[in-house]
Every structure is written in structure tokens, then in C-alpha cells.
Design a protein around this nucleic acid. Sequence first.
RNA 1: GCGAGUGUAGCUCAGUUGGUCAGAGCACCGGAUUGUGGAUCCGGGGGUCGCGGGUUCGAACCCCGUCACUCGCCCCA
Length: 417
Amino acid sequence: MAKLQPVRGTHDLLPEEARRHQRVVDVAREVGQRYGFAEMSTPVFEFTEVFKRTLGDTSDVVTKEMYTFTDRGGESVTLRPEFTAGVVRSFISEGLSQQLPVRFFSTGPLFRYERPQKGRMRQFHQINMECLGIPEFQADVEALAMGHDILQALGVRKDTTLQINSLGDSESRAAYRARLVEYFAARAENLSEDSRARLDRNPLRILDSKDEGDRKIVAGAPMLADSLNEHSATFFAGVRRGLDALGIEYVVNQRLVRGLDYYTHTAFEFVTTALGSQGAVMSGGRYDGLVGAMGGPPTPGIGWAGGIERLAMLMGDLAAPRRTISLVPIGDAGEARALVLAHTLRQQGLAVDLAASGNISKRMKRADKIGARAAVLLGDDELAKGVAMVRDLASGAQREIALDELATVLVRENGAG
RNA sequence: GCGAGUGUAGCUCAGUUGGUCAGAGCACCGGAUUGUGGAUCCGGGGGUCGCGGGUUCGAACCCCGUCACUCGCCCCA
């Protein structure tokens, strides 16, 4: 540690960026409420087993990206790399299967030991939703619509494309996987090294390969859509019909897959080309097999997660709120009065800055620099007349207001909050 | 884990073939302006040139190592 610096892949969230994050979370929480989602949170770390079981022993996240350590009691615990595992664990440990369906919204930091790059950090943040207990496709449509609404409210929906696909139910999926492995195994020597490794870990991922040689082979591979049984095909058609009915644009991407076996039916991603190679800003899907796989009562589920850093980057600059009232006292009497006035106004909900150093010019400069909406001058002249000089810093207009009406007037004109 | 690029003031960067090369703009502080911000002008503080080693009479500049950042691969939000 040559200099004092944050750990690799972590960042300080200074006010300007923190404000953007806050906005993403506020919008997601608000829209989520309209869809019946209640906020809940789970611990930032869990027993390592929780993630191993949900993500699978061979997934990249488990094999090379987890922050795992042994605590003083000898337990292996892991900083959460995603939300779903913890939320589902909570669902099971709290016995929530008695009150289906449940809809949870969560937000907070996640940790993955990866090489940092644009839109990818070791500590990052997501907004997350999970809906448990609804087997019908309507829940998928609602999940998608909620994501769409959030992106729209953030003003970034236009920068994204919604890609959807269906993995089918477990029967369809198993059948497809078998056909796919057979197809690729016969051509294994022509596959890239990466894809050969994927063949036994995560064969569906080969469909996604960026390698040119792989792409040629993939072009002739059996299509997932052809392996869907009747129930799965009907389900997927229902999802698409729902999106059409809501006027939500999407494209079907047959290469869009999820590696793990408990994922079923709908898989989707809102992707952008504006963020380099990290295109996904929000993604998720249905996981009807997960709760059962974790030892809970078989329960269907669907959820998604959105990357706050990525969404914040898409949003661009956010104007700082300009609502502070700056008190500019002149002289001892003014300062004494301003101290009390500042307290009174703050108690009534106004943001107040008290400029207490330097001459009047310095104090006005300070008011301007912090972006105050108005400056309230309190000098001997004003106090003698029982007024304060209120100057609008945007227009420069100023007027006298009686001291005993000041709080009322400022609150009325500048709101409480 | 792999590949490439970049590290000079708080920020964005300049620095000619190694020889006043420690600079600019912005920001910050002070003054012009002892009852009025934004504009302008003047002045000022601030850098072990990421860090360590090497080559050389001499290194911000060349070499090696290291750390960090950025971009890409893998994977993902």
C-alpha cells in the first residue's frame, strides 16, 4: 500500500455520484411499490454453502469470484455476490411459503472478486426484485413491465433493448441440453478452448460465444425454440402476448441463456451498447426449480437484478437540487439572530446554510457556490427596521420581509423539503 | 486467471533527440470590492513527475521490477 487508496475494485461514492445512485434506488422502490413489492433486506454475508448451492459448484461466480473467509468461530462465510440466494434462503428460513405470493424489493452492495473494468467493480450495487409463488406467465410479464417502467422513469429505456428468450420447463430444457451436448461434442475439436470447457460445465453458454469459429458451429446447432414442449411454448407465447398488449418493445434472442439448471422459461436482459462490453443493465428470469433445490417447498419464482452503477452511467448528470436558503448575517446582532433563525427554519423543513465567516462579499460568494436559492441578509439596518433582506440568487431580485413573517414566507415559497 | 494501454498539481493535460522541464488551464485561497454572489483583472499556495532499483556526469524522459488505473477476454449487473 504505497498510498492511501481504496481496495482495488472499490470506489468512494462522492455526493454527485451518490445522488445518481440514490435516484436509481428511489425510482425502483417507488415503481416497485406500485407492483406490490415490499422492501426487505438480507445480510450482506451468508454461510458459503448458501451460494454454493444456489449458484452451483462449477459456476464462475463460485469458482473464482467469491469473497469467502473463515470467521472467528470457524464458519466459512461469503460476502454475497448476488441477491437471489440470500432472499430465497430467507424465504425458506422464515417460513414465508405460508403467505404466497411474496414480492420483495432489495438493494445494497454485492461483492465479486473480478478484474475491474468499466461497469464492473468488486463492490457494486444492484436493485433487485424477486416474486415467489406465482407459476403463471403473468408474473413474468409484470416483472418485465416493472423493469421497463423503472428504466423509463430513469430516462434510460430508450438506450436499451429488451431481449427475451425461453429456456422452457425442466423437461424441455433437459431435452434441449442433451441435443446440444450431442451436437457440440461431435464437433468439439473445432470449438474454441473456452467453449470446450463450457461443454461439460455450461453447454448453453456456447451459444453465446464471441469466438468466430464457434459462431459458425453455433449457426448449425439445434434451436432451443424447437425443443420446447407444448406447455413451454404456450407459456412463452403468453409472455410475448402480454408484452405486446402493454406496448413494451422486445426482441427474441434465441442465444440468450442462463447456465444453471433451475432456471426455467423466461430469461431476459435489458442491454445497452453505450457501456462497452458490459451491456446488461438489468437481467433476470424465472427459476421454478431454485427453492426446491435449496431444500424448501417447491415454489415457482421469478426475479431480476439491475446494476446501479451501470444505470447511473446511462443516466448521465443529475442537476443538484437548488433549494438551500443561505443566511448572511452582518454584525454581532445579525449573527445572533441568524443562529436562531437557521434553527427555526430547519425545524420547519428548510435546508439552511449559515454563512459565518468573512466579510459580506465572502459570505455571498459562499451562498452562490453552494447553489443556494436565496440569500437572507441580516444586518443592523434590517434589524432596526424589523426586516430581513431576501435576495433571489438566480434573478438577483431582492425585497424586504418582516422578521416575524420570514419563516412563514420562506417555507411557503421554498417548500418544506 | 489471460492480453493490451496508461500513471506529471485537487481535476484535465503539456513537457521537443535524456542537459533551468517542474509547466498550463480549471479549481482553491487572497486582493481590487470594510452592506451584496455570478463577469473581469492582479497576486498566492500546492507536485518525493505512482513506488523501488538500474544505466548515465546528469533521468519526468531509457531499462527492469512492482503497485494502481483504464480497455478487452472469461463471466456477469
